[in-house]
């Protein structure tokens, strides 16, 4: 499903060059639930961003579903993100000016030929899956952290992506809420979604099928 070959990422400013990823080779198969662990600054998030096409590698190849993507133009890249990938962020990144259901609908806005009715229907279904169908008209500021993250997951799954990339989804939550979120992700995994999750929490990592450990930009398995 996701294949990274000799992936390198260098962040350079005028004075300093930082090597964030160093020759990473990785293969994640369809339907796998993989966790990524490692100390701060080891390149976990960078790795996830590369997989999610949010950032462009300096060297190497990113393949998603068999097609090379790192050299695509803006538009096909955006389409790929829209159809194949769903993101969950540590700090939720909900749009505060939109209510819950509008937030969840967002990925479908950028998909061609989805009518308003279908959008609404799909968004409500996704919210039901995360158990938030009672709060569709609330605004993000009126929700707790756990609820926000569940909205974010609903947003990630509304477009039926094959891959979900989660960057420390439980990082801002207490353990009780964290495990709630984890249960939702496990549910998704059971339904066949490929999930890559960055986490600090060993207990959560143990629940996944495979754990990739990163240190200083390299995989240390």
């Amino acid at each position: 499903m996701i294949k990274l070959t000799n992936l390198e990422k260098v962040y350079s400013t005028s004075t300093i060059e930082t090597l964030a990823l160093n020759k990473v080779n990785l293969h994640i198969s369809k339907g796998e639930f993989v966790s990524v662990m490692g100390p701060s600054g080891c390149g976990k998030s960078t790795l996830l961003n590369m997989m999610g096409l949010l950032d462009i590698p300096s060297q190497g190849k990113v393949e998603i579903d068999g097609s090379t993507v790192e050299k695509l133009a803006d538009k096909p890249m955006a389409n790929l993100r829209n159809e194949k990938i769903g993101f969950v962020f540590q700090s939720y990144h909900l749009i505060n000016d939109l209510n819950v259901v509008d937030n969840v609908e967002l990925p479908l806005l950028y998909r061609k030929g989805v009518s308003g009715k279908v959008r609404r229907q799909k968004a409500l279904t996704a919210l039901e899956k995360v158990g938030l169908n009672a709060r569709t008209k609330h605004y993000p500021t009126q929700l707790s952290g756990g609820q926000c993250q569940r909205v974010a997951i609903a947003r990630a799954i509304v477009g039926d992506p094959e891959i979900i990339l989660a960057d420390e989804p439980t990082g801002n939550l207490d353990s009780e809420m964290g495990s709630e979120i984890m249960n939702i992700l496990l549910d998704l995994h059971r339904n066949g979604t490929t999930i890559v999750m960055v986490t600090h929490d060993e207990t959560l990592a143990k629940l996944t099928q495979r754990t990739i450990r990163l240190f200083d930009g390299s995989v240390v398995n």
Partner: peptide
């Protein structure tokens, strides 16, 4: 977020 969920630069 919008970009991550598939908005193009143009959009």
């Amino acid at each position: 977020v919008r970009k991550a969920f598939g908005a193009t630069k143009r959009q």
